[in-house]
Each structure stands twice: as structure tokens, then as C-alpha cells.
Design a protein around this nucleic acid. Structure first.
Lengths: 231, 231
DNA sequence: ACGCGCTTGTGAAAGCGCGCACAAAGTGGG
DNA sequence: CCCACTTTGTGCGCGCTTTCACAAGCGCGT
């Protein structure tokens, strides 16, 4: 709107677009690894599993980074998306709950290369505290506040059992963490201004089951015929 | 029109609603554990973290299971949602890739109680094959087809490294599995009719980082004013 | 029996996201 | 220099989602 020339990108990037940028970024990095310098929206869209028009519209929210008749320069686009997502800066992450899931997260290589640094691993179990996971020593949950402060943790990951999750979340918030990724199957209660994202392993399975059942129901008879009766 | 009284629910449930039903179900089961028999849309909506009007509209797609002036009977609603999601039947799940994530999934108690049964664990690593995880013996990936057939596996879970995911997916499809839950950070290529859902641990982190950066940008100064300077 | 208060179920409106289709813009060949 | 070809960026319409607001319905107390 107002100052357009010096500021091509708009601050209001649609949420749906934000959710896809990491997918594009990953596809672009894969292309980069293969030594590809330039890519068309069509090719990138295929690699990312989306419609090419959607891809172009998504990228247009960041600015006009393509060249008509040519496509997008891979390296440049990687940089622009990274910057937009905030991956050019360093994010200190603390993981609470070092069970199998916590270990899986700690060992997940993709973090380090994308601007995320695991600053601390915390657990309540004395048998786990002191162990070394992914070359990081697990500390007791009691030191959460101290760790957050001293290491500048800005993102908290909760991989505890459901019963402990709300308590951990509250302590994170109290300590000043405003971004939380929650793997526990509970709805967290946090004040405004705190951003919580939830990843729920079993919800996805249930959605799959719903569709599978739906397919099975319409199996044998025509799916459209089933839609005819009733209403 | 035809058989309406015995079949009040409509087949066309919006996708957005389906994605929320598991959340309602979990909230309801928590209420049930606390001995609560009846709940209003307002209370349930709060527990599930959604707007009450949205909740009512979602439930209305299943049928009229509430009582005006009173609310919803918890037990009845649990049954209705479970049935709609297909959780009253038994789903055999095979998990491929028994690393930390695969173990976390195998040990995740929530599955068994919700209609999902882990029918098999598979891995390519000879060092892992033969181990017992969650009281199930890990078998070699080569027996995937045999296992799917003999155990009636209908849902495949991929928890392998990215490089192996597409191969596993193709084998699942080949073996007749039409529902796949993918934890590997790649876009899977599958034929029409196969339902793939993706859970990506690092994408969620990147979305959090975006919002955190956004908050940080507008910090101190007015958010709108921040849009003026720099590039 | 009746009315009052509470809660559901649902029209209607507003908002958002998706994808088509095309003009604008750049490239390369002759 | 011009023309044919390629690919981006986006206006537009459509359908899905969310939210508001309220009529309809139910139970309870009197």
C-alpha cells in the first residue's frame, strides 16, 4: 500500500502461506544439493507437492523474486525464504521430557542446519538426568528457569506425558518463553501473546481412520449413489 | 429422504470438522474420567480450545445429539464421535523405522485404547531386527508385504530417514495399504486413492520461529512503524 | 399448567484460501 | 529489431470456514 517501492514484501503473510514456506525451503535445498541453479514454479511446485499457481502466489507475498521467462534462482530464493522464516538468526530450543520422543527430537539432525540450536534437555526422572543424549547432558527440570535465562531459550518443546505438560508450559511462560511446541495430547492453557503449536501423533491416525472407513463404506456400491439418498 | 430416522447423520462431514473431532473426543474422555456426565457446548469448547459456535456446528454434522437447556451427555457423545471416526472398529497399524521416533510411537499408549492396534514393527537394520519393542518383536523390512497381508494391516506409519521413505511408501501401496502416516521430511508420491498425512517436526518449529520473529520485529516500536525502515 | 431461564441448532454474513486464466515481462533466435 | 516462446505475478470467481445472532426447544420451579 503506502511505501511500496522500498518495501516489496508485505508484513501480512497469510498463515496458510507461512505453513508452506518450510516445505518449499526443503524442496529448494534438495535442488541445491543436486547442483540446480534455477527452477520454474512448475518444477518447484511438483517437488513440493502443490499447485504451481499457489506456489507463485505464496512467493509473491515475499516479493518479486522470480524472473519471467526463466524462473527462480534457487540460492536466492533459499535465502529469502530463510530470512522470512527467521532462520537466519539462531533460535535456542529447550526440550522437556527426554523419553523416546524427546530423544528422537534431540537426535533429529534437521534442526541444527536450519537455525535451531538445542540449548538444553530437561527431565524430571533422576534416572534420566545426567545421561548424555545427542552429546548434551540432560538436566533436571528444576533448573528450567535458570536454563531459559542463562541460555536465552526462546522456544520450548514439550515432550512429556500429558499430565505434566500444563505444568511445564506454565513454567516456560513464567520464565519468559513465548513460543511452545507441544507434543503432549492436551490443550495447553497459556496467556495471550504466547504462541503454542500442537503436534498430535494420534489425531493424525484418527483422521486417517475416518477416511479409511469412509472408503470402506462406499466400497462395493457406487460412491455417488450413496450420496443420493438422504439429505 | 429414504431412511432418515435411523440415519440422521450426513455423509458429507467437512474436512475441518473431521480434524477437530479427535480433539473433542479427547476432551470428552477427560471429562468422563472426572465423572462428569453432562457438558454444555460452552464448557466443552473451552476444554477443547475452540469457539463454542464452531463446536456446535461441528457436532451438528453428526446429528442432533444435544438437549437444549441441558447440553450433551458425555458418554453418548463419546460413542457417537468414536463411531464416526471409525474407532469402534479395529485398525491394524504397521510401523516402519524403529529408531527413537518409531519406539516413541510404539510405546505411545494412546493407540491401543482408541481402536488402533500395532500389528507389526519393521526395520532395515539387522541390529534392530529381533529386538523387542513395546512387547513386539521387530521384523525385517523384507517381510513387509507378507505382514501386511497376513495381519490385515490397513494403516502404514513411516518413521524412517527421509531417503528410505518413498521406497517404503511404494511398498505399502503395492501391498494394498491405502492410508499412510508419514513422519519423514519428504513429499511422498503415491497414486490416487491413497491417503497420505504428513507430520513434520521441524516445519512446526519453523512456523514458530516465523511468529516469534514477527513479534520481535514489532517489539518496542509500533508494529506498523517497523514496516517503514530497512529491507 | 405455565412461564422463565438456559442451551442447542442453524440461517446468514463475512472472511479466507484455492486455482483458473491471462496480461505483463523477460529470453533467444533469426 | 522483431517475433515467437517461456514463465512470472495477479485479478477474479468459487467454495469452504468461521462467527454472529437468534429462534426453537427443553427442564424446572412455582
Amino acid at each position: 500500500m503506502t511505501s511500496r517501492p522500498p518495501r516489496p514484501r508485505d508484513r501480512g503473510i497469510p498463515e496458510a502461506t507461512v505453513a508452506r514456506l518450510p516445505v518449499y525451503l526443503r524442496a529448494l535445498q534438495a535442488l541445491q544439493d543436486r547442483g540446480i541453479l534455477t527452477v520454474s514454479s512448475e518444477a518447484l511446485a511438483t517437488a513440493a507437492g502443490v499447485n504451481s499457481a499457489k506456489l507463485r502466489k505464496d512467493l509473491s507475498h515475499l516479493g518479486s523474486y522470480g524472473t519471467r521467462g526463466v524462473g527462480y534462482e534457487v540460492e536466492y530464493l533459499v535465502y529469502q525464504i530463510s530470512r522470512e522464516l527467521g532462520l537466519t538468526q539462531d533460535w535456542a530450543v529447550a526440550i522437556v521430557g527426554i523419553g523416546n520422543l524427546g530423544r528422537a527430537l534431540a537426535n533429529y539432525g534437521g534442526f541444527g542446519s536450519r537455525g535451531f540450536r538445542i540449548a538444553a534437555l530437561l527431565d524430571a526422572d533422576p534416572g534420566v538426568v545426567g545421561q548424555s543424549v545427542a552429546s548434551i547432558q540432560v538436566r533436571h527440570i528444576d533448573s528450567l528457569e535458570e536454563v531459559v535465562r542463562s541460555r536465552g531459550v526462546s522456544i520450548g518443546v514439550i515432550a512429556t506425558p500429558a499430565a505434566s505438560a500444563q505444568g511445564v508450559a506454565s513454567r516456560f511462560v513464567e520464565a519468559g518463553v513465548t513460543s511452545i511446541l507441544n507434543f503432549a495430547p492436551v490443550v495447553l492453557n497459556v496467556p495471550d501473546g504466547v504462541d503454542v503449536r500442537k503436534v498430535d501423533l494420534s489425531i493424525e491416525l484418527q483422521i486417517l481412520a475416518f477416511h479409511a472407513q469412509r472408503r470402506a463404506d462406499g466400497d462395493g456400491r457406487d460412491a455417488r449413489a450413496a450420496g443420493l439418498e438422504l439429505t
